[in-house]
């Protein structure tokens, strides 16, 4: 008894192979989607972190804080208009070189209020009610 025609066999095996391939591809796609979602989440959390760090950076670089720190740790002040020349040749030939000297060899930064604490201390009108 002739069991199956060759053509049928080929068709069946084609169907099987394509089915298997499809399954394999779909598995790959799903894995890729999971990867994308994970990366997306990581990216978002990194971006959120960057926002927080940038806010903190600008918070710590407030001009009044920098001014206080500069007064405390540096010997520099605002430049007087007498010290600004528009022509370098006006300088005397043997100008004494300025040697910086540091008052504080080790800088102890003051304990700063963290941005987190600011958020913690926020009050809202609705809380008061």
């Amino acid at each position: 008894m002739r069991i199956v025609k060759i053509s049928t066999l080929i068709a069946v095996s084609c169907a099987f192979i394509s089915g298997a391939t499809l399954f394999w591809v779909s598995q790959k796609v799903q894995k890729a989607e999971r990867d994308i979602a994970r990366l997306e989440k990581e990216k978002n959390s990194e971006e959120e972190m960057m926002r927080v760090l940038k806010a903190e950076w600008d918070y710590l670089n407030r001009p009044d804080r920098l001014e206080t720190l500069a007064k405390e740790h540096l010997d520099y002040g605002a430049i007087d208009s007498d010290y600004i020349l528009d022509n370098a040749s006006l300088l005397p030939n043997k100008s004494p070189l300025y040697t910086p000297h540091y008052k504080h060899s080790q800088i102890n930064y003051p304990k700063e209020q963290k941005l987190e604490n600011i958020i913690e201390n926020l009050t809202y009108e609705e809380d008061k009610q």
């Binding site: 999971r34 979602a37 997306e40 989440k41 978002n44």
Partner: peptide, 15 residues
């Protein structure tokens, strides 16, 4: 994975 993946995807879009 399925549970997490749907969560990831919906959150990713939201954020």
């Amino acid at each position: 994975f399925n549970i997490q993946a749907t969560e990831y995807i919906s959150k990713g879009k939201e954020e």
